[in-house]
Simulated scan of single mutants.
Amino acid sequence: MLFIAFAVEMASTAGATGWLRGIVKAVPSGDCLVIMGNTKAEIPPEKTVTLSSLMAPKLAPRRGGVDEAFAWDSREFLRKLCIGKEVTFRVDYTVPSINREFGSVFLGDKNLALIVVAAGWAKVRQQGQQKGEVSPFIAELLRLEEQAKEQGLGCWNRAPGAAEASIRDLPPSALSDPSNFDAMGLLATKKGSPLEAIVDQVRDGSTVRVYLLPEFQYVQVFVAGVQAPSPGRRAAPEPVVGTEVSSNEQNGDSAAEARAP
C-alpha cells in the first residue's frame, strides 16, 4: 500500500466548504460516478461527477461497439472500489460546453482520483481549455502517473497482447432492439442452469440489467414471481445534493492521509 499525504483547504464556516456527502449509485466509466444525495425524499436527487483532470479509456455504448483498450478494466476497478458506498465530494470546475461537472471525491480519507491514477487506470490531463480547469491535486496526480508508467500498471501495461485482450466487442443490446437477442433460444439451451453475468443496473426491486458473460450481451432480467413498486419518473436533478460536511470533519480544517494501492 502506498500512503499519500494530501492537503485540504481551510474553511471558516461549514457553508463555505462546498464538500457534500452522497452514495455512489453508478459508475459509468473509470473516471465518472453518479452520486445520489443523502435524503429522505422518495426519489433522491443525483449528480454525475467526473474526477478532475482524469481521462479514462472510453467504453463502447451498450447498444454495441468496441471499447478502447483497458476501458472495461478501468471502469470495473472504480466500480468495485466505491459502488454503493458513501463518499464525500466537491465540484472543482464545470465545462458548460459539454455540460459536465468535474470534482474531487473521497472514500473515507482516500482520494479516488489518486487511487485510480496510482493503479494506472486513468491518464492525467494537466490543464483544461480554460484557466482553473484542473484538479487541486494535480501535482500528486502527475507524480503517481509517472510511477504507474514506470511500473507498467493498468493502462500502461506493456505486455504483448494485453491491450488487445482487454477490448470488448459488444453485440447489439437486447434493450434497444429485442430482435438482437434470442431469449427463447437461451431458455431452451440454458433452462435450469446457472448463467454468469455482471449486474450493471438495478432498475427496481424486481428488475436488473446485466451483461451476460462471456459475450457481454446486455439484457434486462425480471425476477420470477416478484413485482416491485416502480420508482416512477425522476425529478430534474437539483444543483446541490447530499449533506454538507462541517468544517471540523474531513476536508475541513485539518490535514488527512489517503491510501492508494
Rank of each mutant, 00 (worst) to 15 (best):
Ser246Ile: 08
Pro57Trp: 01
Gly132Cys: 05
Val134Lys: 14
Phe102Met: 10
Thr88Ala: 15
Ala41Ser: 12
Ala139Tyr: 04
Gly232Tyr: 04
Val219Leu: 08
Gly64Lys: 06
Ser173Asn: 02
Arg259Glu: 09
Ala224Asn: 07
Met1Gly: 12
Arg63Asp: 00
Ser29Ala: 09
Pro239Asn: 12
Gly205Arg: 03
Val95Tyr: 04
Gln217Phe: 02
Asn248Lys: 13
Thr50Ile: 07
Val202Lys: 13
Glu42Ala: 13
Arg79Thr: 03
Trp19Ser: 04
Gly132Leu: 07
Gly128Leu: 10
Pro28Ser: 08
Lys131Ser: 14
Ala16Lys: 14
Glu164Gln: 14
Arg209Met: 01
Asn111Arg: 14
Thr207His: 02
Phe70Met: 12
Val226Tyr: 03
Arg233Glu: 03
Cys155Ile: 15
Phe102Ala: 10
Gly128Asn: 09
Lys85Trp: 03
Gly18Ser: 08
Leu175Gln: 04
Ala159Ser: 15
Ile23Cys: 00
Pro239Arg: 14
Glu146Trp: 11
Gly22Arg: 08
Gly103Pro: 13
Leu153Ala: 12
Ala26Pro: 01
Arg234Pro: 00
Ala256Asn: 09
Gly132Gln: 10
Ala197His: 06
Ala228Gly: 04
Ser254Arg: 14
Thr88Leu: 12
Asp200Val: 05
Val199Met: 07
Gly22Cys: 04
Glu146Ile: 07
Phe3Ser: 13
Ser173Val: 00
Ser179Tyr: 00
Asp92Met: 07
Leu213Met: 08
Arg125His: 11
Ile35Ser: 08
Lys191Gly: 09
Pro231Lys: 12
Lys131Leu: 12
Ala148Met: 09
Pro96Trp: 08
Met55Asn: 08
Glu257Phe: 14
Phe137Trp: 07
Gly30Met: 02
Val8Arg: 13
Gln220Met: 07
Gly37Leu: 06
Ser12Val: 11
Ala7Cys: 06
Asn251Asp: 06
Ile4His: 05
Lys190Ile: 03
Val240His: 11
Ala197Arg: 07
Gln126Lys: 15
Gly128Lys: 15
Arg259Ala: 14
Gln151Asn: 13
Glu215Cys: 07
Gly132Glu: 09
Ser29Phe: 00
Ser29His: 02
Trp19Cys: 03
Cys82Gln: 04
Arg125Asn: 13
Arg62Val: 03
Glu42Met: 05
Ala7Trp: 04
Gly252Ile: 01
Phe181Cys: 09
Glu145Ile: 07
Trp121Asp: 09
Leu213Asn: 05
Gln217Trp: 05
Ile83His: 09
Ser247Tyr: 08
Phe106Leu: 14
Val223Asp: 03
Ser247Arg: 15
Ala255Lys: 14
Ile35Met: 07
Gly185Met: 11
Ser166Val: 04
Val87Pro: 06
Ala260Ile: 12
Pro28Asp: 11
Gln147Trp: 13
Thr50Leu: 06
Val66Met: 02
Leu141Ala: 06
Gly18Val: 04
Trp121Gln: 05
